[in-house]
Amino acid sequence: MTIDYLLSILKPMLEGAQATVLLFLIAIIVSIPLGFLLTLAVRSAIKPLAWLANAYIYLMRGTPLLLQLLFIVFGLPLIPVIGEYLVLDRFVAASIGFILNYAAYFAEIFRGGLLAIDKGQYEASKVLGLNRWQTTTRVILPQMIRIALPAVANESVTLVKDTALLYAVAVPELLHFAQTAVNRDFTIIPFLIAGVIYLLITLCLTLFFKWFERRLRFD
């Protein structure tokens, strides 16, 4: 094993890691706000909306993410008549799958965060003259984010590892290039490198959330 060999497999693997990181960023940036909207829907006074949101969360959490991805990437195009319009770029289709799935998990996390906020916070806000929007955005949300942060951090690390599911829908990413190199060169090294790269990504993420938690701490 030489440095040259290491460099030669590192290049495609880092390119694969780009797809991993890109999917992660897209999924997290869209699914967190979407998850919060879902939480609001679950708590909505409009009963059918709350019911739909609950059913959605149940569906997303009750079935495997891998099934959902296969369904969107390979299943949707098979639907008669409209199927041909549902053939998406596989990376795009997979991103949608991750967003829809993770939004449900984040919704559950945020719901728990809201439950942990004392009702006295709403009452004090009301007596001070704040309206519902001001109360939500200036009093409740900041506290909810702080409370939910450790669980969000945890879920984010899981998301990084879940990006490996791209392998199953044939989108080239980190694991794909590692597997290719292992098959071609009969060496275990690419797997080890892939593991190290995943570890580095999750380490960065963990450090980021630790820093963020310290910044937001108010107890």
């Binding site: 004392d118 916070q121 004090a124 900041p142 506290q143």
Partner: peptide, 14 residues
């Protein structure tokens, strides 16, 4: 025109 002080203060912790 009315203010209220609660038993458990209800300050905004953040």
């Amino acid at each position: 025109k009315m203010g209220m002080v609660f038993q458990h203060f209800n300050l905004f912790p953040h």
